[in-house]
Design a protein around this nucleic acid. Sequence first.
DNA 1: CCGTTTCCCATTGACGCCCATGTGGTCCCA
DNA 2: TGGGACCACATGGGCGTCAATGGGAAACGG
Lengths: 140, 140
Amino acid sequence: MIRFLSNSVNRIDAKGRVSVPASFRSILASADVQDLYCFQDFVFPAISVGGPELLTRLEKRIEVADPFSPEANRMSLLVHGGGVFMRLDQEGRLMVTDFIRSFTGITDHVAFVGRGDHFQLWQPEAWEAAQKAAREGLGR
Amino acid sequence: MIRFLSNSVNRIDAKGRVSVPASFRSILASADVQDLYCFQDFVFPAISVGGPELLTRLEKRIEVADPFSPEANRMSLLVHGGGVFMRLDQEGRLMVTDFIRSFTGITDHVAFVGRGDHFQLWQPEAWEAAQKAAREGLGR
DNA sequence: CCGTTTCCCATTGACGCCCATGTGGTCCCA
DNA sequence: TGGGACCACATGGGCGTCAATGGGAAACGG
């Protein structure tokens, strides 16, 4: 069962790499996931990361629509244009590319956040703020 | 499996050439594609690029319509009249012709955007704006 | 014959593979 | 129960390879 939980902040090194938390890596390993589908999230300034089936699931939503419809084009723009496959290096680290930085505002630290069937990369302060906002939103 | 993903911006050199991202090139190579069919996109100010089968697929769409219908005429005008075949040079670079510049507004940088079975060339700022608009459009 | 395109080579910087280090936590045993 | 060996994990850095880019020169076409 794939279920990413909890959050932690790791440091980006001088070469722009960051260690993915071991707990997340072991989940990926047990699901035998090599290629990580990473896309610029639809609602948050965060990168969502999951296995290839995450992309497949999103593509299903495109296929049902007329290929020339604005709806399908809009989805493809985000799902295909806003997504990449990435791999971890041998130590389980991820390159923090411009693709990630420009969208999230990440500079030198990354917050890894479990989201159930996937996890996300956040700029740490933005994550703090979003978490706080979510908590307050529940009270109402 | 042919699946173009992600986006990145490359620079046009003094001779008007631009490097196609290596990830896109490797997909083309694995599909053994030499000639690139390029056409002015139907919905965005961008050039869509794919293998010859992309043209075939569009032509299929024309055939199913009544050959004298305004619909079929319009499609053919765009698919045939607005399309060209291009090739990459030995280093995997593309000549940015006037055909591309005038339709997209591209001047000195090109945004390459994966769209699944094909990819697109955008003027970088226009791409940013379109992506942002697509994201906001999803909320509704 | 001249301007444009393609080929070829050089440079630079980024990325992936490999190995080393530090630190916190756990387990074992006296 | 205190100390020490050990281990897992985050992190640092050397180095080779490849991609992106620049520019000279040949090939091509009008």
